[in-house]
C-alpha cells in the first residue's frame, strides 16, 4: 500500500522572496515525513535544500516544523498527517541558510559555553539507579564493564524553535544551552566548577529570562526536559542566595 501526500514546503534563498512550493509525492504506508521530503527532492526538485543523516532520531539533523509544530521528520509518520497537505517549514529563531536548512552555529556556541560534551562519562548507574545490565552479562563482572552512554540531547534545535522567549529576546541563552549547563552541573562536585557554571546561567538573558511556558519540554523529541533543567538551575541559584544571605 502507498500513500499520496502533498508537501507544501517553504522555500527560501538569500535575497529572494520566500514562497511555498507544493509537491505531490507517493510514499509507502510506513513512510515518515523525511521520506516524503526525499521523494520530493528525488523526483521533483533537486534544488530543494534539506538536511538529514541517521533517519532514526539520533542525530538531530533533520528537525523542521511540520504543520507549525517542531518535529523530527525522520520519526514523524506520514500517516499521522492524514488528509492531504503537510506544511513543512524550517525551524524558527535561527538564520535560514536555504529552504529547510538553518544555521545552527548559535545553538552549538551556547552548548559549548558550559563545555558540554555529548558523551557521558563512563558510568554504571543512571540518575542514581543502577543500570539494568544486558541480559546474559556475568553479574560478577558487570560493575567493571564500562558504559559509554550518549547524552539525551541530540542537538536538533527544536527547543529553541518552540520557545516563545527565544523568539522574543534574541539574547536569550536558550533551553538547550541551559539544559547543558544543568547536565554539566550534575557531573561535577567541584565547588569552583559549580560556581562557574551557575554564574554562566545566572544572567538577565540566561536562566531568569524564561517565561515558564514549558514549550521546550513539550517539543523535545528526546526527553531532555530543558524547562525542568531551567527550574533546577533557578532553584540552585536561589538556594545559594539564601545560604549566602543567612550566613552573613
Amino acid at each position: 500500500m502507498s500513500l499520496q501526500v502533498t508537501l507544501k514546503i517553504l522555500r527560501s534563498r538569500p535575497h529572494q522572496e520566500q514562497r511555498y512550493d507544493t509537491f505531490d509525492v507517493t510514499v509507502p504506508d510506513a513512510a515518515n515525513v523525511l521520506d516524503a521530503i526525499e521523494q520530493a527532492w528525488a523526483h521533483h526538485d533537486r534544488d530543494l535544500m534539506f538536511r538529514h543523516a541517521c533517519h532514526h532520531a539520533s542525530c538531530g539533523t533533520c528537525a523542521v516544523r511540520i504543520n507549525g509544530r517542531e518535529k523530527l521528520p525522520c520519526i514523524a509518520p506520514v500517516k499521522d498527517y492524514d488528509g492531504g497537505e503537510i506544511k513543512i517549514e524550517p525551524l524558527r529563531n535561527f538564520p535560514i541558510v536555504g529552504d529547510l536548512v538553518v544555521d545552527v552555529a548559535p545553538f552549538f556556541q551556547n552548548q559549548e559555553a558550559s563545555d558540554f560534551i555529548i558523551t557521558r562519562p563512563t558510568e554504571n548507574e543512571l540518575d542514581g539507579k543502577a543500570i539494568a545490565h544486558t541480559q546474559g552479562l556475568d553479574p560478577e563482572s558487570a560493575p567493571t564493564v564500562p558504559f559509554n552512554r550518549f547524552e539525551n540531547c541530540v542537538e536538533c534545535g527544536i527547543c529553541l524553535s518552540a520557545c516563545p522567549t527565544m523568539s522574543a529576546d534574541y539574547k536569550f541563552f536558550g533551553p538547550a544551552g541551559l539544559a547543558a549547563i544543568k547536565r554539566q552541573l550534575d557531573k561535577t562536585t567541584d565547588a569552583n566548577e559549580r560556581e562557574k557554571l551557575l554564574h554562566l546561567a545566572d544572567d538577565e538573558h540566561g536562566v531568569w529570562r524564561c517565561h515558564s511556558a514549558w514549550e521546550c519540554t513539550e517539543a523535545c523529541p528526546q526527553s531532555v526536559f530543558p524547562a525542568e533543567s531551567i527550574m533546577a538551575l533557578r532553584k540552585e541559584i536561589n538556594a545559594q542566595r539564601f545560604k549566602k544571605f543567612f550566613r552573613l
Partner: peptide
Amino acid sequence: MNLYRPELKRFRFLRWFDFRSWRLGM
C-alpha cells in the same frame, strides 16, 4: 542570535503571543 521571522518584522510584540500551540504552559 539572529532571528529569522519575516512575518513578524513589523509587529515585534506579536512574538509575545505564540498561538501555534494551545498547550497549558503556553
